[in-house]
Design a binder for these strands. Structure first.
Lengths: 185, 185
DNA sequence: CGCACCATGTAATGCGTTACATGATTTT
DNA sequence: AAAATCATGTAACGCATTACATGGTGCG
């Protein structure tokens, strides 16, 4: 699956593994993330398949860069995947919710501390969607006017991330209120 | 991580791998899922660690059952994990959103079909949270009145799933409207 | 008659993370 | 002086999925 995310970025322009990582972090990280090491591994296997090719660009003051380019076969494979109907629900792994599921076994104070910590994290994430992510989409769109339609899609996915964090913050706040309002045993 | 979900269920009562799978499907599947084969593998490694023990219950008309019981060490390990502050955001892998991110490259009709399909799936999931999941929590709470506090937590996690699906449905509906309102090129 | 349910497990494979290894330049 | 950025990669490990293997009972 990661291979399609990588191919997707390479449809815009050739780039290095390092740059792909940066793009992911700035745009898709809230619904699709990846570690740098895994990106390098996946690029290599894409090259073995013939879906991308790579050339070395030598540099003197920086390490050499390996620039990956998508091949026609890769283009084709990516398009096929993109158009393919997706008929499942994406599997979720939400550690906080799992902990809460069993947290009746804990004292309220520990649970409240846990929730407060997560509230802070999600609030930070929310404000990042409202600021950094908005800006990075707008600057890409301004720089390349041909990508206007793409930018509208990117904005829609950003909005998904924002709505998700709003929901998370609301849920945690409700949990905190509910726990505080309950008689201690 | 799955090991803690399994231990969590075993704190309520001893049970088989098969039963753990059923419990997961009925209660935590929307934020924590697992395949049966992985549950068996994890139970075995928990037994090697000494966190659970197992006994065989012979049956004549059905296959024998291996019943797992949590040990004091396992109890301790589970409690430690539960009380541990969770300081990250859970990583997400949302295939639909990833596809949408790149879908400016597709014609609107294909995108609309994709969205409509997912809308149906999420609406079904939503109504399941409002019906089956509500009932299964209530029947567990009625059967074991001592679990009242637990049931309140289960209900909170169910509510999270419901809110999440409401968000998803809303987002897809907005996407459909936006795409329909755009001039075709 | 076929499908779903009960019930457990192994083998092969794939995907992902963490740690390791290197090393100059730029920013704080 | 320390940390972050640029830049690539491998090795070991862990976790998860898919396929394989078995086989009786109960329901529609």
């Amino acid at each position: 699956m990661l291979k399609y995310a990588i191919l997707g970025f390479l449809t815009y322009s050739p780039m290095t593994g390092y740059e792909i990582k940066q793009r992911i972090d700035r745009s898709t990280a809230h619904f699709w993330h990846a570690k740098l090491s895994q990106i390098y591994i996946t690029l290599k296997s894409l090259e073995d398949e013939g879906w991308v090719t790579s050339t070395i660009q030598e540099q003197q003051e920086r390490p050499d860069r390996r620039i990956y380019t998508i091949t026609p076969t890769g283009q084709q494979g990516f398009r096929t995947w993109l158009a393919e109907p997706y008929m499942e629900l994406s599997p979720k792994k939400e550690t906080l919710i799992l902990k809460m599921f069993f947290s009746a076994q804990l004292d309220s104070q520990t649970v409240l501390t846990q929730l407060q910590l997560q509230l802070d994290l999600h609030q930070k994430q929310l404000s990042s969607y409202r600021q950094e992510v908005v800006h990075s989409i707008q600057s890409a769109a301004n720089e390349f006017p041909a990508l206007e339609k793409d930018a509208r899609m990117w904005e829609a996915t950003r909005r998904f991330g924002e709505m998700y964090e709003e929901l998370y913050v609301r849920w945690i706040e409700e949990m905190i209120m509910e726990i505080k309002s309950q008689p201690q045993e």
